[in-house]
């Protein structure tokens, strides 16, 4: 795809494809989050739906949506700018918060 010919045609393009690699890393991470959300749904469906279980599962799905929106924004920012700005610590903290909250929901479901 990015052979020597392509590079000659577009000299401004970053030869290391850093934004693309970062975009794919976001996609992979979102996919991992999806697996966790699906497992949460499976836990509730399998273990007889108690009210607390359904709430924890719904929270997991909302957190997954939150993570998805962070990833989406970042991917958009990467696509627009030629040399994208550094990732904001606030967004990093938000992504980690989603992950931690998913684990807490998991603990609630397991117990």
């Amino acid at each position: 795809m990015s052979g020597p010919a392509a590079r000659q045609r577009d000299p401004d393009r970053d030869p290391g494809l850093q934004p693309e690699r970062t975009r794919l890393a976001w996609r992979r991470t979102t996919l991992s989050g999806t697996v966790v959300a699906v497992l949460a749904v499976k836990t509730v469906l399998h273990g007889g739906a108690s009210a607390a279980g359904v709430v924890a599962c719904a929270a997991c799905c909302v957190l997954w949506l939150g993570f998805l929106s962070i990833a989406h924004r970042r991917i958009r920012a990467l696509a627009v700018a030629a040399s994208p700005a550094a990732f904001a610590p606030r967004h990093a903290a938000a992504a980690v918060l989603c992950t931690v909250a998913m684990a807490v929901c998991g603990a609630a479901l397991v117990l």
């Binding site: 991992s32 697996v35 998991g106």
Partner: peptide, 8 residues
């Protein structure tokens, strides 16, 4: 996330 998924 993999560790959390492993917990589930």
């Amino acid at each position: 996330l993999a560790l959390i998924g492993g917990g589930f």
